[in-house]
Write a protein that binds this DNA or RNA. Structure first.
Lengths: 189, 189, 189, 189
DNA sequence: AATGAATGAGGTTTCATTCAT
DNA sequence: AATGAATGAAACCTCATTCAT
């Protein structure tokens, strides 16, 4: 904190965008949060939207980077899926504010910027379907619609940003495990 | 359409809030959409926020009403859960815009209003855990954390508002069935 | 005054743009001049630049309209030129502020708008060369570079906006006559 | 270039003030043009306005200095007038940007500064009327209003900054000659 | 000599809401 | 029921200038 002012500003923006929403957060709010005058912010940023863009980009990149490593790893498809769920869930839980901004505010980006984020999220989805398709081919998963399955899992895992609270009775890792188990085994006795 | 002007205004608001977001939608936008002057809107509404409140309330009420009927029905817990998933999925798919406004914009409500919506969504969650708990007790479901299971299912089902498109290769009913199957049986072979 | 608010605003803008320049005139200045709040101006205009555009357009149109009538009239080229000089001079003198805005501020228009004004001023110049060329053909004027002559005359006549003051010892008509005489006969004895 | 940084800055300012206007040119623009940081400029200048003042002063001084030499020369009034026109025209043509700044932007100076420039331009005008008055007394020119004649000539000659382009079919000298001829002989056959 | 962080005032524009007609 | 003029606050952003380093 303090070393890199841009980072400090981005952190303030993440916090405020999460709490109030992008449009309801004023540049003044961000300036107040970092203790600068409104105008002084513009030494570091070129626009409020640039901040949102950087934040969402950083967020989706974090998801993609982890997922690519999992895909490249030498384990069974089932284990890849378990890892993917665990990683997604813990990443959301450990970056709640940033994830919320990505999931809720990215659509406020200007069309050009939004397109870039959209492409990255599409890529992320594809990485999920790859794992599932491979698992089906390896006879590890039931045949099915891999995109629908991926969307079901991602829905569950993303939803975490709406209810997870640090200090609850389960750790993110435990939640990830549980989610993995649900999707693999189902809840029926 | 045209009979009830308030309803017409609400429909315009739903459409615009979904498309642009609550804060990015101006009262002028809504007025344009219904073909009135900005000032004339205020014969029908008392504030922009009131519109958002009515919309989110109507939306969450729709979810709750259906769920209560399911709970009261005389079928097994498993069948209740299947019905609940089917109903939620089809309700989202058939009310995409309104659902999006509920899920993405409710947090823009003033604290007092937001609290009301929060209570209703909490109630909705509780209805889901009720079914699951009963299913566990009836030995239909594996023992587990019913809240976590409900949140997993709701996450999947809510996420639909981000990707569902009318005219896709599966109907909402088919998607609902598939989701139910995933959560009951899992995807592992 | 008061009947047409837009006209009132435009008049205030002309006065202020002339006095302080376009960029040095704030929307606040204009609002103060007409006794409105800054924001209220935007019921009548869509931007400050629109005002400048309207003003310059009205101004150059005034010049062109008069000139076209002169061209169509059935008099000798010499008399057309005299009329043109008289009209230009009196138009400048009677619309000092607007002319100043046209001549000094039009270049502040955005490229698209500026292009429109440029085309109109080019057209105006061409009307002048037409008269001169016809006069040369009719053997009324010495052979010469009609464009250069037109630019010389226009320079003199436009410059009026920098020095003319109402109530001076010569009326605009007298100045026009004198200018016409200078350009036709020269000053040499 | 480079030896005298102040001169470099002034040249950048002339170029930018001409292109965009004084108010539309930011100190940042000037800094960019000379490859310095905004703050560093203030080692050389004390304010943006000082730059405009220096530029306009240098410009009007150039006009006055030449004119004084002409007045002192031992030739007929007619030849003085011809020389004056030639010099003015070539000076404008060879210093287009600086002249434009003088003619278009001087009025943006603060009152105190503006007054100084005004006095110099008034002096310049008086030098012209002196020549004309002497020519009338020497029976070289027709009797007339010397101020009006001077303003007519200056208008033509100043207007050059709005249309002259290097590389046109006439050199500045040829244009000067032509203008002199027009004002002396007129265009009527 | 040069930087670049910071200021604080002011720029244009948008907007939810009110109200007389 | 509908208008449209008007408000006043707040939005994002720019800018000339200062100053510690």
């Amino acid at each position: 904190m303090g070393i890199n002012k841009y980072e400090e500003i981005a952190q303030a923006a993440i916090k405020l965008f999460e709490r109030k929403g992008y449009h309801a957060t004023s540049v003044q709010d961000i300036a107040d949060e970092v203790g600068l005058q409104k105008g002084s912010l513009y030494h570091y940023i070129s626009s409020k939207e640039e901040l949102l863009m950087k934040i969402t980009q950083q967020s989706i990149n974090g998801f993609n980077r982890r997922m690519e490593k999992i895909i490249e790893s030498q384990v069974s498809s089932k284990d890849k899926l378990i890892l993917a769920i665990q990683h997604h869930v813990t990443y959301v839980a450990r970056n709640m504010e940033m994830t919320t901004v990505l999931l809720r505010e990215a659509f406020s980006l200007e069309p050009d910027h939004h397109k870039v984020i959209k492409e990255e999220t599409d890529r992320y989805l594809k990485l999920w379907t790859t794992i599932i398709d491979e698992g089906v081919q390896a006879d590890e998963f039931k045949p099915g619609d891999s995109r629908l399955i991926a969307l079901a899992i991602l829905g569950s895992a993303n939803w975490l940003h709406r209810w997870y609270q640090e200090g609850g009775k389960m750790t993110p890792e435990e939640i990830g495990n549980y989610f993995a188990q649900i999707f693999l085994e189902g809840i029926k006795k």
